[in-house]
Design a protein around this nucleic acid. Structure first.
Lengths: 146, 146
DNA sequence: CTACGACTTGAAGTCGGCTTTAGGACAAGA
DNA sequence: TCTTGTCCTAAAGCCGACTTCAAGTCGTAG
């Protein structure tokens, strides 16, 4: 059994987040020591999966949906494959973006808007925007700092 | 001169967003036709840049900061280069993630948590989390659908 | 036995990036 | 002249993912 603070420390997740996850059904505590939640060590890999799911752009609700399919964690392969494709599309978009940014950082032209190469990269970058691509939320500065 | 609705249409940005951008100093309207904002066509490439900046993970405030440096748009090369590096790190993380997802989608193992390959990928994926990486916000479903 | 400190709760607050709403204003067409 | 349609404004609302707050409850060290 792990105390909530122990879980928080080992998973790098704040206790308040753990309580929130419990509230929305993402994880469960197995008992209490006084008022304090006690967790089965199984919660740790589960939290890793949650973290990965978030990184993959799944919402907590979607992740909860996967987890609730069975008592154990069973992952819906087709949805995961589809999301993998989304993420790959996202990667390509970001790669174009990096090219554009690198150009801006290096090109001596003052007014990028009139630089032909910039214009071309920008056209590519703006054309490639996949409307269905979903990305993970930007972490709050608060959360990132913690 | 372009009417706000024209700009909204051509830039795929809602009028309310244009007004919001104006409020926070990202763009400016040059005159009014009655009450209606009229825009210089220059606003279109500017909006493209804003869109790109968002995709690169800059906040609107950061973008506004760049834009305000001079009357024209002058981009701070060092910050852009730094962000490009961030985005590249993000790309690598996402690539690991895609490998992990693809494995999950293909591996016949029922319980991924006990699959050695999965464990290894997960270790890599969770180890690679760059704390400073910033990502664009997930578009609202509302906004995405519009 | 009592004080301490870490936990508990539900509710409210935060953040960015908008959208929506309510109540007006205006130009152009009938 | 009046209606219509689109715009205007300020203010409030929304979303997800939490965090923070105020007030309360425990186990344990002293």
């Amino acid at each position: 059994m792990l105390d909530i603070s122990e879980v928080a420390r080992r998973a790098s997740v704040k206790p308040s987040a753990l309580r929130y996850y419990e509230k929305i059904g993402l994880i469960a505590s197995v008992s209490r020591h006084g008022l304090r939640r006690q967790y089965d060590p199984d919660v740790l890999p589960r939290l890793s999966l949650i973290s990965l799911g978030k990184a993959a752009g799944f919402s907590l609700e979607e992740i909860a949906g996967m987890f609730r399919l069975t008592p154990e964690i069973v992952l819906p392969r087709d949805r995961i494959a589809a999301r993998a494709a989304d993420v790959e599309a996202e990667i390509e978009r970001l790669q174009t973006l990096v090219r554009l940014m690198r150009h801006v950082a290096l090109c001596p032209e003052d007014d990028h808007l009139s630089c032909p190469r910039f214009q071309k990269l920008m056209r590519v970058a703006t054309r490639e925007r996949a409307p269905r691509a979903r990305r993970a939320p930007r972490p709050t500065r608060r959360a990132a700092a913690t």
